[in-house]
Nucleic acid binder design. Structure first.
Length: 360
DNA sequence: GTAGGGTTAG
């Protein structure tokens, strides 16, 4: 296909190239290829994907009135969900189920369930799950994980939804479905969201007892949850476990931890963690340095300020406005020496017009 | 087809 040749030989195709090719395919009613190209475009991270998706979908279904085949259905249902048209996806899935020649599978249904849950339409998602067995399709662990996630997302404003998520987890386990690492991680995140740290720790133990191995996402969720809920003493424990399992926190996880420790006024722990981070070969980035500087300044820890500024300068990192103003106020108050101003001047953010905005 | 993340004044 042309797009593969272009990608291989020259460069990533841009949105104009994709759209032109997709339009051409639609003209010849080759919707299967058009949808295939849409998927490729989506994967490549081309931005206005939602608009193109909607255009193709409308051309196919609503203008031409072409009865979609199984392949088209399977591409269209996730497409409709992606652009927030889950009601149409729902209707399409019903049509598909009613058609004797086509048999939607658990994947088709799960995509819809997931989309509904993310839109907050839990009841509709549950209705879908209920009709699945009538069509001889059993919801699997992925289907239920999406449902649990749906409840957990609502737990932001309604903590009782977390209980409902736990209840579902218990129910499906009793039915003989085995929760996997994604299910547990989803539930753990929900429990932390509802500030239920003890329940989260207990579930984490159960998870490991049942032989489900936590992965790096699980640990990131745990670390984040513990720090947000001021459970500082668990951090070291979790880091040791990660190490034992050969998992390593990345720069975002370290920076999150540093920020959490500073917020809890655990400056010594934060400094120690920064050393560990460097020793393990995880390179701090500009956010890490700003978080560190910000944390030190707010906690009246001035010994390392000069060193951090020098390191930022060596790496070509800039100061955030908030960090800069903290520095300036400390200098004005004669807490920090004026001689720092020369260095700070080099690290001040410079504002410029982003040329790429003018490209299109 | 399912889970995660860092900046925002005193």
């Amino acid at each position: 296909m042309l797009v593969r040749v272009i990608t291989k030989k020259f460069c990533e195709p841009n949105v104009v190239m994709y759209s032109t090719m997709i339009k051409g395919l639609c003209k010849t009613h080759d919707y299967v290829r058009a949808v295939g190209l849409l998927k490729l475009m989506d994967k490549s991270g081309c931005k206005p994907i939602v608009v193109v998706y909607s255009t193709v979908i409308d051309k196919m279904v609503f203008q031409k009135g072409i009865p979609p085949g199984a392949v088209t259905y399977n591409s269209l249902i996730p497409g409709l969900c992606k652009v927030g048209r889950s009601e149409e996806a729902s209707k399409m899935l019903k049509e598909m189920s009613d058609d004797q020649k086509m048999s939607p599978n658990v994947k088709n249904f799960s995509i819809l369930v997931d989309a509904l849950c993310k839109e907050g339409k839990i009841e509709e998602a549950e209705a879908i799950i209920k009709i699945m067995p009538e069509r001889d399709i059993l919801p699997d662990i992925v289907t239920y994980t999406s449902l649990i996630n749906g409840y957990c997302l609502q737990g932001y404003c309604n903590e009782s939804k977390i209980d409902e998520a736990m209840h579902i987890l218990q129910e499906i386990t009793e039915q003989g479905l085995e929760p996997d690492v994604v299910t547990y991680t989803t539930m753990l995140q929900g429990l932390f969201r509802g500030k239920r740290c003890e329940d989260a720790k207990e579930l984490f133990l159960i998870m490991k007892e049942t032989g489900c191995s936590p992965n790096d996402t699980t640990y990131n969720v745990l670390l984040h949850g513990c720090l947000k809920n001021q459970q500082y003493d668990d951090v070291k424990m979790l880091l040791v476990e990660m190490d034992e399992r050969g998992l390593e926190p990345d720069v975002v996880t370290y920076t999150t931890m540093l920020q959490g420790l500073f917020r809890g006024k655990r400056c010594e722990d934060a400094k120690e963690l920064f050393l560990i981070m460097k020793e393990t070969g995880c390179s701090p980035n500009d956010t890490t340095y700003n978080v560190l500087l910000h944390g030190c300044l707010k906690n009246q820890q001035y010994d390392d300020v000069n060193m951090l500024l020098v390191e930022m300068d060596e790496r070509g990192y800039l100061l955030w406005a908030s960090t800069l103003s903290l520095l300036q106020s400390r200098i004005a108050a004669k807490i920090l020496d004026e001689s720092l101003l020369r260095l700070i001047g080099k690290l001040e953010p410079k504002y410029s017009i982003n040329a790429s905005c003018l490209d299109t």
